[in-house]
Simulated scan of single mutants.
Amino acid sequence: MKKSLIALAVLGSVAGVAQAQSSVTLYGVVDAYAARVKSGAVGAETSTTVLNSGGLLSSRFGVMGTEDLGGGLKAIFKLEQGFDASNGTANANTAFDRQSWIGLEGGFGTVQFGNVWSAFDDVFYIGNSVFDSFVFSPGAAGFSLNGGPVLSVYNYTDKPRNAIRYTTPSFGGFSAAVSHGLDENAAAKTDQTDFNVQYANGPLTVAFAYQLRRDSGAITATEDQKFAYLDAAYDLGPVVLKGGFGQTREVLATKTNDYQLGVDFPLSSALTLSAGYAGSKDKDGSDTKRQGLAVGATYTLSKRTLVYTALNSSKRKAAGTTSHKYSFIGAGLQHKF
């Protein structure tokens, strides 16, 4: 009887250690907003009231986990699916459209294999004002303008798929990452390569990112696209200053210069205001320009729930004449679990 009790105690101890060495977490974000949107060619704008998903963060759910392999080495994975909170539909026709990767993590850094965020996307948020919102920030909002976004670098690919990515450890605040998406097609060369280098130490964060997309240009099927972006943020205490400058280049066509400036105002532990301005200009002789101005605020109700509001005004000019306008005012609710 005593031997049986001892054996059970030992098995329980081993099971406890094994459980401590592995963990799986279910997580997610539900984000929905209502907005009044006005857009279109000058003199022919139309107004619409919408209820959409993902005002600040894209709605998603996922599972991530780690296993301690010993010697400081860990096996890691993440499976993440996006969905539209306004109607309940899943993004794309895939099981895990946002992320699905497996990797190893240790003193050497992190290696990931699968559908993983590109190294370019990894640092783009740093200088992006109005909470890095894909909907509300001054550059992203220009997507509603005919003729392209306010910031052309928003055309970069965030997930190359079939990708391999390596991220270094931080060395005194310096780190780097490189990712490569395989085209898996012997008859074409539509692969994608990204890298970034960044410094994050104290109040200053600055990063440079680059993306090369082979044979993916808008003019010809054999045209490469190149995206370069430098952004930074500096925390002064009362405010956080943000900004960035980038360039998109198509080898056989044109190039576009982009820039943005922004500031975050933490008014209290719960309330934060953010404002930003973004612009771009095509360097192809057309003198096409895009400009966007946005202001937003978030109010934290708890550790997991917040409300937000934002307004935006954007326009597109060609040869000095405004051709298209876009504006909206909206509010939303977000919960994380």
Score class of each variant (00 low, 15 high):
203 P>C: 01
198 Q>H: 14
65 G>V: 13
306 L>F: 14
149 P>Q: 10
297 A>V: 01
331 A>T: 05
332 G>S: 01
177 A>V: 08
302 S>W: 11
57 L>Y: 12
48 T>W: 10
287 D>V: 01
22 S>L: 04
18 A>V: 13
122 D>Q: 13
58 S>Y: 03
291 Q>I: 05
310 A>R: 09
120 F>D: 05
137 S>Q: 00
92 A>Y: 14
10 V>E: 08
208 F>G: 00
116 V>P: 08
275 A>C: 06
179 S>C: 11
247 Q>P: 02
125 Y>W: 14
295 V>P: 00
38 K>L: 09
296 G>A: 09
89 T>I: 14
224 D>N: 15
316 R>D: 06
94 T>H: 14
267 L>A: 14
58 S>I: 10
135 V>G: 00
15 A>I: 07
176 A>S: 13
257 N>V: 04
121 D>L: 06
19 Q>A: 12
13 S>R: 08
226 K>H: 08
183 D>H: 11
264 D>H: 00
6 I>A: 11
337 F>D: 01
209 A>N: 05
192 Q>W: 07
280 S>R: 04
245 F>V: 15
40 G>T: 11
257 N>T: 03
314 S>R: 03
81 Q>S: 15
50 V>K: 14
73 L>S: 03
103 G>M: 06
333 L>I: 00
211 Q>F: 01
61 F>H: 06
176 A>I: 11
175 S>V: 07
183 D>E: 13
242 K>A: 08
175 S>R: 10
27 Y>P: 09
194 D>K: 07
307 V>Q: 05
336 K>S: 09
247 Q>R: 15
250 E>I: 04
28 G>E: 09
202 G>T: 00
34 A>L: 12
333 L>M: 02
265 F>S: 01
133 S>R: 01
64 M>K: 15
60 R>D: 00
318 A>P: 06
171 F>L: 06
64 M>G: 13
156 Y>K: 08
204 L>N: 04
229 Y>S: 05
282 D>G: 02
293 L>T: 04
239 V>N: 06
